[in-house]
Structures are given as C-alpha cells and as structure tokens.
Simulated scan of single mutants.
Amino acid sequence: MEHTERQDAGTARSGTGEPRWLDPEELEAWVQVAMLMMHLPGELDAQLLRDSHLTHFEYEVLSRLSEAQDRSLRMSTLATLAGGSLSRLSHVVKRLQDRGWVERHPCPEDRRVTFARLTDAGHDVVVQAAPGYVENVRRLVVDKLTRTQLGELIRIGRRLNDTVERIV
C-alpha cells in the first residue's frame, strides 16, 4: 500500500484494524536496527569464545557484576542488565558457579530474593576478557562513528531503552 493512500505514519489508527505501515525512511531505519541485532551478537560471541571461552551473555553477566556495588546484584536486576530472562540467567549463573566465578546467596531481608556475587576468580576472568572485548566493540561500532554520531547513538539508545532504564 502506498504511503499516500494511508494516514500519516504518526497518526494512530484506532478501531480501523489497518496496520501503521512503515514509510521508506522508517523501513530503512528498522532494517538497519534489525541488521545490527542480527550481526553484532554473533561477532561479539565469536571473539569472546575464541579469546576468553565466554559467550557474550556470560561476559555481560560477569561485567555487570564487576561494576556493581560489592560485586553483587539481585538475580532479577542482573537478568535485565545482561539482557536475558531470569530462567536463562539461572542456567548461566549455575555454569559460572561451577567454574568458581559467581556465588549465589539469599537476601537476608527477603529469603525469596537471590543475589549473585562475583568471586575474585570471576573478577580476574572479566578483567582478562575486557581488553579484547573493548577492542572488538571499537572495531564493530565506536571507531566507525564520529563523536557527533556517538552522541546521536547515545540519545537514540536511551530513547529506545527507556523501559529497561525504568526497571533498573
């Protein structure tokens, strides 16, 4: 359906049941985001697996814990920050526990809440993995953009991720 045959893309279509089709610019923006979502995870995983024997999700878990106060976070908060479900996080934390990199402990105030804490050995792992990861992030994203574009990306990311920021 042609853009001129439908209502302006910014106007809600309540009650008509017709989709709000993307105009060419909106479609191009979405295609670029979708390509990033498909491309970046594989690139990040490949480098981390090759250099540090970690998946990207494992690295995110260790990294988020390393940045937290007392290297400890509620499992639900950690799942949000690392970009995974609580179920997925539980499986990964179990693997990281088996390696001696993370410990779980109940919240003293609410036994229904579980915390994950980064061990010293886990901290060493994330510190060793970080330089290669950062270099890959630079290669894939940061070094391809100007400072102005990085600022735009920050603003766009904050806008798109505002739901996550409210949860945390």
Rank of each mutant, 00 (worst) to 15 (best):
M1K: 12
M1P: 07
H3P: 03
H3T: 15
T4R: 05
T4E: 14
S14M: 05
G15A: 12
G17A: 07
W21R: 13
W21H: 14
P24A: 15
E28M: 05
E28G: 03
Q32Y: 01
Q32W: 00
A34F: 11
M37R: 15
H39P: 01
H39A: 12
L40Q: 09
G42W: 11
L44F: 13
Q47S: 10
L48I: 09
L48D: 06
L49S: 08
S52K: 09
L62Y: 05
S66H: 08
S66G: 04
E67R: 11
A68L: 06
Q69G: 04
R71P: 00
S76T: 14
A79F: 03
T80V: 15
S87L: 02
S87P: 00
S87Y: 00
R88V: 11
V92N: 08
V92D: 08
V93Q: 02
K94H: 12
W101N: 01
E103G: 00
H105L: 13
P106L: 07
E109S: 15
E109N: 06
D110G: 10
R112V: 14
V113M: 11
T114G: 02
A116H: 04
R117H: 04
R117I: 03
L118W: 06
L118M: 06
L118D: 06
T119V: 02
T119G: 05
T119C: 01
D120N: 05
V125K: 00
V126H: 03
V127R: 14
Q128H: 10
A129G: 06
P131S: 06
Y133P: 00
V134M: 08
V134F: 08
N136L: 14
V137D: 04
L140I: 10
L140K: 01
V141D: 09
D143P: 03
T146Q: 08
Q149V: 01
L150R: 15
R155I: 03
G157T: 14
G157Q: 07
R158A: 05
R159N: 05
N161F: 04
E165T: 10
R166S: 13
R166T: 08
I167W: 11
